[in-house]
Design a protein around this nucleic acid. Structure first.
Lengths: 360, 360
DNA sequence: CTGTTAGCGCTTTCAT
DNA sequence: ATGAAAGCGCTAACAG
C-alpha cells in the first residue's frame, strides 16, 4: 500500500499490455481494436468506438508487439546497415542521413559495426534477412565485394559507397568528379607534380579515385597536369605519416606541389610529417582532403576539402533498399549532387584582429 | 534452363526454408526437427535421425525464423546499445567490448545512435523493450539522466559510463582514480597550477572528474597540489581551442603548468591553441588526455594519456544487463581495472636515428 | 524415441 | 459496423 501511493495510476505493467487487453477493457473484439489502431483504410468504425479504443489503449500504455506483427506481415520494418567500425568520422554523417530518411519512411535501421580486423563477406550478412531480423541489407563492408566471389545475394540489398559484384545494387558518389575538382584547382594554381595519397586499393572508393587520377596523369597537354602519382597506405595516421616520409625521401627532400589525401586520419599523419620535415603548407605543398570535417580548422595549416554528399548518400541508400524491399527491381544510383572545394584556414585566436582587419 | 545451368544445386530460396520444410524432407515431425536443431538437453533422439536432420537442414539452407522463435520464447536474444553519435572515437572501443561479450553469451547488440543535437530521455527507449524488439537497454545517452526525472524504468536496463537516477543500474569506470593518477604525476613533476579542461557539466563522467579534481584542490598541504581550476567547454575542437585562449587571456599570457583534457577533440583544439600561442609543451604546459587514441602520437608534441578500460566497460555493461534479463536483481558495477599513465612521444621520421640511437 | 497439440500476439479474410 | 476464425513459424508440454 505504501508503495502504491507513490505509483502513478498508469502503473508500470508487470506483464506487457496486449491487444487482447485493450479489447477486453473496451468490450470490443481484438480485430476491431487492431483496425482502429492501424488506421485501416478499409475501416468503417464508428467515431465514438474509435475514440474509445484510442483512449483506452493510451491509458493502458499499449505498445504493439513488433515480433507478432512482423511475423504475421512477413516484414520486419527494419534494415541492417553494415558499416566498418573505423575511427574515420565520415560514417556517422552517412549514418545520420540514412537514419533520418528511414525514419521518414517508417522504418528502423540496425547498425551493424564490422571490426576492420575481422572483415566479413557480404554474403555472411544474408542470414539476418533469412532469419527475418531485417528486410534488407545496406552494405558498406570493409572488404571490397569481389566480382568473382560467387552468386549474387538472394535478398534485398544495396552496396553503399562501393560497387558490388553484380550491377544494379550500387549507391555511390561521384568520386571521379571529386578528383576532377582537385586537379582543376591544382592546375589553376599551376601545380604540376601531384600525389594522390589514399587508402588500400581494395577499397572501392580508393580504386575509383586512383583510376581517375591515373587517367588524368596520362592525358597531358597544354594546361594539363603533368604528373599524378598514386600512393596507397593504411587509412590511419601512421599510414599517412609513413607515406609522406617515403615521398620526401624519394624526392630527396623535395615535396610534391600538391597532395590529395583520401581519409582524415591519413591527413593528420601527412600534416605531422610535413611539419616535422619543415615543408611549408600550402606554399610548398597544397593539401586537399577528400573528407570534410571540423578538425580541418585545427591542423594549424590551411587545407582545402572536397565536400562529398555523405548524408545524401545514406538517404539514397535507404531509398534504393526500401524500394527493393517493396518489390521494385534494383537499380544503380550515382549521386550527382554538385560538389565544391572548401578552403579551411587555421582557426584564429578569438577576440584578436584577423589579418584582414589588421590591414584595414 | 540456361539460367538454371549457372545456379548451384543449393539454389537460392524463393521462399524461405521453414522448419516444416525440413520436416517434410526428412519425413519427420517438426517437433523432432526442432529438438535436434536446438540440441534440446532432454532429447532422446537416435543418432542416425539426428544426423539426417542436420544434413537435410544444411542442404536446404534452413535458417530459423528469429521472429517466430522470439515470439514463442518471449525473449528476443538482443539488447539495444544507445550511444551518442559523436566523433569521439572512444565509443567504438566500448562498442567493440560489448559486441564481443554479447557474442560470447549468444546475444545480439543493436546499436542505436543518438544525434547529440536531439538528445532523448532514457525512458524514450523503453518502448523498444515493450515492443519486444530487444530484451534490455544499455544506456549511454547524451543527456545525463536526472535524479528527479520521475519513475524508474520498468524494463531491464543499465546505464553505461554514467549514473542513472536510481541506484543499482550503473556500470562506470573509476574516474576518481584517473584524476588521482594525473594529479600524482603532476605533483611528482612539481607542477602546481593545474587546469582540468573537460566537457559540459551535464555529462556524468565530466561531473565526477570535476568533483574529484575540485576535492583535490581544496586538500592542499605539504606535497599537495595547490590549485586545480575546472573549465567546462563543448567536447569539440572548437571548445578546446576557445577554452585554452580564455585561460591564456586570464593568465595574461601565462599558461597553466598542466592541463588535463577530457576528450580527444578538445585536445586537438588545445594543442592547436598552445602551438599558436607559442607555449612549449610539455616544458611550459604538460598535457594529459583522459582518452587514449592513436592520434596522440601525431599531435607534434609529447602528451600523456590515462588508459581507461573502455572495452572492459562495454563487456561489463553487457554482463550486468544480461544478468538482469535473466532475472537476477540489478547491481552497480565500478570497474577497478588498474590504470596507468602512458607517455606519447611524437612520431619520428622512419629510418632515421632516434635520439637514443644518436646518443649511443 | 517420436508425434500431437496448443499457443506466443498480431493481422486479415470472411461472415454476420 | 463489428465479430469469428485462421494462421504467420516456432517451441514445449504432453501422449503415445
Amino acid at each position: 500500500m505504501s508503495t502504491a501511493l507513490h505509483r502513478p495510476s498508469t502503473d508500470g505493467p508487470t506483464h506487457r499490455v496486449r491487444l487482447v487487453d485493450v479489447a477486453q477493457a473496451t468490450g470490443l473484439d481484438v480485430s476491431t481494436v487492431s483496425r482502429v489502431l492501424n488506421e485501416d483504410p478499409h475501416q468503417s468504425v464508428r467515431a465514438e468506438t474509435r475514440e474509445r479504443v484510442r483512449t483506452t489503449a493510451r491509458r493502458l500504455g499499449y505498445r504493439p508487439n513488433a515480433l507478432a506483427r512482423a511475423l504475421k506481415q512477413a516484414r520486419t520494418g527494419a534494415v541492417a546497415f553494415v558499416v566498418p567500425m573505423v575511427r574515420n568520422p565520415i560514417w556517422s554523417v552517412v549514418e545520420r542521413g540514412a537514419l533520418d530518411r528511414a525514419a521518414q519512411r517508417g522504418c528502423d535501421v540496425l547498425v551493424v559495426s564490422e571490426p576492420p580486423d575481422r572483415p566479413r563477406a557480404a554474403a555472411s550478412y544474408e542470414p539476418m534477412v533469412l532469419e527475418s531480423r531485417v528486410d534488407g541489407l545496406l552494405l558498406a563492408t570493409t572488404r571490397r565485394p569481389r566480382v568473382r566471389s560467387g552468386a549474387a545475394l538472394t535478398v534485398p540489398h544495396v552496396y553503399l559507397n562501393r560497387r558490388g559484384p553484380h550491377p544494379g545494387h550500387d549507391v555511390v558518389m561521384d568520386e571521379e568528379a571529386a578528383i576532377a575538382l582537385w586537379l582543376a584547382e591544382m592546375a589553376r594554381q599551376d601545380r604540376r607534380d601531384l600525389v594522390l595519397l589514399d587508402g588500400p586499393r581494395e577499397v572501392d572508393t580508393v580504386h575509383r579515385r586512383a583510376t581517375a587520377a591515373g587517367a588524368a596523369s596520362t592525358a597531358s597537354g597544354p594546361g594539363r597536369i603533368h604528373r599524378v602519382r598514386v600512393v596507397h597506405a593504411e587509412a590511419t595516421e601512421q599510414g599517412g605519416w609513413q607515406a609522406t616520409w617515403r615521398l620526401l625521401d624519394a624526392g630527396r627532400g623535395r615535396a610534391p606541389e600538391g597532395i590529395g589525401v583520401g581519409s582524415l586520419p591519413q591527413l593528420t599523419g601527412v600534416v605531422a610529417a610535413l611539419r616535422a620535415a619543415g615543408v611549408a603548407v600550402p606554399a610548398g605543398t597544397a593539401l586537399v582532403s577528400f573528407d570534410d570535417d571540423a578538425v580541418l580548422d585545427y591542423l594549424g595549416v590551411p587545407v582545402a576539402s572536397v565536400a562529398m554528399p555523405l548524408a545524401a548518400l545514406g538517404a539514397a541508400g535507404v531509398d534504393a533498399l526500401l524500394d527493393q524491399v517493396g518489390g521494385q527491381p534494383p537499380r544503380d544510383v550515382l549521386l550527382r549532387t554538385p560538389m565544391s572545394l572548401i578552403g579551411h584556414q587555421p582557426a584564429r585566436p578569438p577576440g584578436r584582429p584577423t589579418p584582414a582587419a589588421r590591414i584595414a
